[in-house]
Each structure stands twice: as C-alpha cells, then as structure tokens.
Design a protein around this nucleic acid. Structure first.
Lengths: 224, 224
DNA sequence: ACCTGAACACCGTTCAAGT
DNA sequence: ACCTGAACACCGTTCAAGT
C-alpha cells in the first residue's frame, strides 16, 4: 500500500529502532504483561524486534539474565507501604505481602527467580528496606542478614507455588490428588495427618501468607 | 549376527517387557540417577522403552505427574533418623535436613516439585512424621498443620535454589553478580546493606540450613 | 563491534489410525 | 483398552559469515 521507505526492510514496520538492552527488556516486559512470561522467548523477542534470535545475545547472557532484568523492573514499582508511625513488624509484613502479590501476577517469573540471585538496583533497594526494618526491630546483624534471605525466599517460593497452581487447574490438578489422598487417609496409616486433617487445607492464601511471615519474623526475633 | 527371534522387533533388545507405570518410573529413576532429571524426557523414556512418546500418556498424565512419582521413590529411602530419646526439636531438624540433602542430589527435581502438591504414599508418610514431631512439641494443631507446609516448602526451595546454583556455576554465574553488587554498594545508596555486608554471604550452606529450620521452628513454638 | 541466517539438537503433547 | 508413527508447534544457543 504505502511506498517503501526502507529498501531492505523485511516488513513495513514503523521504523527499526536500534537494538539495546533497555529496548529488549521493555519489549519483554510488554509481552510478559500481555501474554505471560511463557511467551517471552528469545525467538519471539527477536521476531518482535525484527531480527534473529542470535542478535539478542549481545545484550543478555541468557534467558535467566533476562528474567532477572524483568524482576528488577517489576520491583521498581514496589512502593514502601505506609512509612508512617506503624510498628516495624507491621511494616515489614506489609512489604513482604506487597512483594509476594507483585509476584503472584507473574508466577512463572517467580519460578524463574527462585533459581536466580537477583542483583538489580531495585532488588537491592528491596533488600536494603527489609534490612532496615529488621534492624529497627533490634535484631543482631547476622540474624537480620540471614533473615532477609529467608523472608524473600519464602515470598518467592509461595508465589511460584501458588501461582502455578492457579495455572495448573486447567491442566493437571495435582492438588486435588493431595486433597483426595488426605481425605482417604486412615488412622492406621497416617494417624497424625488424620488428627489435623481439617486444618491442613484451611485458611485463605492471604491468611496463610501473613501467618508464614509472622511466624518467620517471630522466629527471627527470638534471638538465641 | 544372531538369528532373529522376534520378526517385527525394531532391534535386538533383550526382550520387550510390557509397559507399566512402575516400569516407566523405574527407568525414569535410573536415567535421573545416571544422567540427571534433564535427560528424563518423554521422548528419551519412550526410546529407552522401545516405543513412541505417545504410549507413555497411558500411564502418566504429564511430565509433572512423572516428577511427582520420582519424588515419592526418593522419599521412600528417607529413614527417620535416630528415633531414640533425643528431643523432638533435634529430631525434626535432623529429618528436615535429611530431606533437603536428598533433594540436593536432584536440584532439578526440587525445582519441579516446588510447583507440585506431591501426594504419593511415601510423601504422605513424611508429612505424618513431621506432624508427629510438631505435635510432640506441644504445638496446637493448626500451628502444626500449617507448619508442615512451611517447613517442607523451605526445604524444597532451598534445594531448588542451592542446587541449581551449583549447576549454574559453569553457565551464567548470577550469584557472582550479586556478590559484586553487594561489595560495590555504598552507604549513600544502600546504608543497611553496607552495615551487614559481611554477614550477608557468611556461613556454609549446612549452617544456614540448620539455622533456617531452627528459626522457623522457634517461630512456630512461639504460639500466639 | 555488532548483527545475522541457518543450523544443531532437541522439546511436550495430541491425534488419527491401528491391533 | 492399549499402543503407535507422525505431526503440530515450538524451544535455547552457537557458529560462521557478513557489515
């Protein structure tokens, strides 16, 4: 229809912006938000940027590094909640819940991040903030330092697990297998499981999440 | 060389045993032990069993279910350590460490299990045993019921993370990125991180693992 | 240095057709 | 019911060759 402006252009795209790491990440972010991380593949990204997959390896080492960059972008939007006069403990639980909810929206990213050691500037800011709150709670520095890891891992693992479960409902449905197995357990085979049967699946995700963070923070405070 | 005994046999394999779920799982287990979970693919498994990949779907729903079955086989070998007169707390930490070490040998399985709700008989036995110890510690039943989940998730997440890190050393090396970022952090940008800098990477994997379990159990005991 | 097409070496799952 | 070959619809990464 319109006359060609770029003689060797493969298609009539608006323009071919030069490749850059930032460009890569922003396109990846868009695809992730619109279609999920599953669709963010090197091949798809390359197609979107009107090039071949090999070209991307100039800007990212591999898929894992790309995922790390995506996490950092997400974490950038994480505002410290209510920096007001509420207690450090409540603030910390709020921050951890906010981070977990962020990951809930992208369970497959959580899955990927679990295998990473994120090191982006925004993630470091999150670490620093969690540390601030733990130290504000009067925790010894080793307790605080190791605690950040424990808390962040818990958040990521929960998001990875919970999120993929929602996705897996259509597909497999392994949690129904567990529910079934638990309901069929007898006192002869699994006596303790039977004793707490009703509590094992109880509570909402939100309740159990807050409970988990509270439990860990209690354990951290209880200095030995 | 030798005369054909099976006229339509594709190759001179010893014999073609009929397919079964148990047979599938045992071949999968062997490949996992010898070459790692990465090599346990439907296609590879089919080739090993002298059939096409489609045939496997009679016995397992999908790859996830197969991984669940593999975990259950591993957990079967998990002997309850020292059921002697040592305290419930020490016994529990020992059991959790044993489970984690089991998974350390198969990090990619841990990764996969994180997205599952395992429901095999041996896994249920593990749940029952952890519950027994928590209840022996005098914990209220909701605390115990939710606690099992927290403890087992922590174990799996640690194995998934730690294990893949060992593997990733050859490949990417994202943890070095973090170490670098931490060492380059300044008091202006990340004041709290700088304050605990030396503790954040300290300790061996074993030390931190025991510490994490102790912390969570402390938090669980501290009933609210 | 940056960019590329093509190739290497694979995947999981489904389906129509057989036995 | 069980089993199968072939197909569908893809992957990440590397490499030699170009600019």
């Amino acid at each position: 229809m319109s006359p060609r402006r770029t003689p060797v252009g493969r298609r009539d795209r608006p323009a071919k912006t030069p490749l850059s790491r930032a460009g890569l990440v922003s396109v990846a972010l868009r695809i992730m938000r619109e279609e999920g991380l599953e669709r963010v593949t090197m091949r798809r990204l390359a197609a979107e940027l009107d090039t071949g997959p090999a070209s991307l390896y100039v800007y990212v080492r591999n898929t894992a590094e790309l995922h790390g960059a995506l996490l950092d972008e997400l974490v950038a939007d994480l505002s410290s909640p209510e920096t007001a006069q509420s207690e450090w403990r409540e603030q910390l639980i709020g921050l951890m819940c906010a981070y977990t909810e962020l990951l809930f929206a992208h369970p497959s990213l959580a899955r990927s991040v679990l295998l990473l050691r994120p090191s982006g500037p925004h993630y470091l800011r999150l670490i620093d903030e969690v540390l601030r709150l733990l130290l504000a709670g009067g925790m010894p520095s080793r307790q605080a330092a190791w605690g950040v890891d424990l808390l962040l891992q818990q958040a990521t693992a929960t998001a990875a697990e919970q999120g993929s479960r929602d996705e897996a409902v259509e597909a497999g449905g392994e949690e129904e297998d567990l529910a079934l197995a638990v309901s069929e357990a007898t006192s002869e085979t699994y006596p303790h499981l039977v004793r707490v049967r009703d509590e094992i699946m109880s509570g909402t995700g939100e309740q159990r999440l807050r409970w988990a963070f509270t439990t860990i923070i209690d354990g951290l405070s209880h200095t030995r």
